[in-house]
Every structure is written in C-alpha cells, then in structure tokens.
C-alpha cells in the first residue's frame, strides 16, 4: 500500500515495521556472510576473512549433489501429481453442488492446516500398517498431500471466477470434453496452475518434517542440511547450500506472485 501526504504512517509504526523486516531478513544475510568465511568450525562474528573456497568444496561434494538431485526429483514428481489431482478437485468442487460438499472442501484443504508432524506420523503408521517399505515414492506421497492443497487453492479461485457458461458454450459449439479442456479451460486456468505448481515445488523442496517420517535412508536436501548442523565439519558448506536454496526457491515464489497479483486470488496461504 502506497501512502500519500495525507496518509503517512506514524513514526513508531514505521520503526516497528522496519524492525520486523530486519528481524526476518538479517539472518538470511548472515547465512550469505558465513558462506564466504575463512573460519570453518564456529560462527565467529565478524568473519575473520573472505574466501570463495567453499563454493568449490561444495561443488566437489557428492553427498550434496545426491541430496539436491533427490529433492528436485521429489519436488517435480509431487508437483506433477498435485497439478493433476488438485485441478480435478478444484474443477469438481467449484462446479457441482452436492451433499457433503463443504465437508469435502474442508478435507481437501486440511493437510495444509494440519501440523506436519501429524501428517508425518499418520503417513508413517499407514505405510507401516500396509507393509509399504520407505522409498522415494513414500516421500513423494507425503509431499503430494500438501502440494495438492496449494494447486487446489489456486485453481479453485480461478474456476470460481470463470463463468460456467463458457464450458457450455464450448460444448454447444461442437467441442467435446477434451477439446473444451484444451481450448477453453486450460487457457483460463493456466497461469493459476503455473503459480500453484511453482509454490508446490518450492514447498516440497524445503520440506523437513513430513520427509523425516516418510523417508527411509534417502536424504533430501533439507534433511542433509539438518544432519550437517548436528555434526559439523566444513560448516560453511551448509551455508553455501542454504544460499543456493534461497536463490533457487525465490525464483518460483516471485514467479507465482507475479502470475497471480492482478486478481484477488490465493497464491500461497498457509504452511
């Protein structure tokens, strides 16, 4: 919100807002600073020296690459699942009127409101009960639970804005279901899906809690970072990775923001 001359924020509010923003974002800058320090055992301030050596060290570590690849694969596949299922959910719940619709809507968005630890325990016991061994796919399933919600939220907002007679008009003009989806529905919800997909990807990429419960021996990038903090050797490597994660996740989040800003739509919401 822009303030004009007559509507200037009072000084204490400005101060509080600035303080809040600094509190939120200074730690990020600290991470960046420690990625280039010459001290590798403790967080010493100010950093005793500047070096770019850790970039090369990180690049050469195979465990970093393994974790990164796993995280990217999980995020990509969980997002793909979420795009299909979330869109279908949104289409059904925004169009049809039926008994129990409110309850189902609540159930669809519940995974994002539930604490990750509850989702995690629930999935772990379910997998255990069904005798499903923990694997890449159990991680994907765990992530899909909340990725679907993000896609659903974005898609349902767009579906509600879309006049239902557009679909009927398309049928009326001779287009079958598939043609209608391709030529009318998809172009109208495309940007919402892209935004939802990007956010789902970003959420999955940095997920720790559900992953801890649903992963076997695999280490996704956030889990790897957590382990590195507990037993520190070459501490700045973690910071270099963290810096890379910040930069990589910033891109889809900004993208989602720009895709949905001209419409009162839910892009992120929750989690």
């Amino acid at each position: 919100m822009r303030s004009d001359k007559h509507n200037r924020a009072p000084f204490p509010l400005t101060l509080a807002a600035t303080g809040g923003l600094l509190f939120l974002h200074l730690p990020l800058l600290l991470i960046f600073a420690y990625a280039f320090t010459t001290e590798d055992k403790s967080f010493q301030w100010p950093p005793p020296g500047f070096t770019t050596r850790w970039l090369a060290v990180t690049w050469a570590r195979p465990d970093v690459w393994q974790a990164l690849t796993l995280s990217l694969q999980v995020a990509a596949i969980a997002t793909a699942f979420a795009l299909v299922l979330g869109t279908l959910c949104a289409a059904a719940l925004s169009r049809a009127r039926f008994f129990g619709q409110e309850a189902i809507t609540l159930l669809v968005i519940l995974p994002i409101a539930l604490p990750g630890i509850v989702t995690g325990i629930a999935l772990r016991s379910a997998f255990g009960m069904m005798g499903i061994p923990f694997s890449f796919w159990t991680i994907v399933l765990g992530h899909a639970t909340f990725c679907i919600v993000v896609v659903y939220n974005n898609a349902v907002a767009r579906f509600r804005r879309m006049s239902p007679s557009l679909v009927e008009a398309s049928y009326d003009l001779g287009a079958n279901g598939f043609q209608t989806f391709r030529h009318v529905i998809l172009p109208n919800i495309g940007t919402a899906l892209l935004a939802g997909g990007m956010l789902a990807f970003a959420l999955s990429f940095d997920e720790v809690i559900v992953t801890t419960f649903t992963a076997g021996q695999q280490q996704t990038l956030p889990i790897w970072m957590l382990e590195e903090l507990i037993r520190p050797h070459e501490r700045p490597v973690t910071n270099v990775v963290a810096m890379a994660v910040v930069l990589v996740t910033l891109i889809p989040i900004l993208g989602a923001y720009y895709l949905t800003r001209d419409g009162a739509e839910t892009a992120g919401s929750g989690k």
Binding site: S165, E168, D172, A175
Partner: peptide, 16 residues
Amino acid sequence: PWKRHVNTVFQDYALF
C-alpha cells in the same frame, strides 16, 4: 450437446 445441430446465444453471452 456437441453432437446436436443446435446453437445457443447465452444470456451472459459466454464469449471466450
């Protein structure tokens, strides 16, 4: 509807 030789002018026009 897509197999009927009938077309509709909608109340809200329903232009794409």
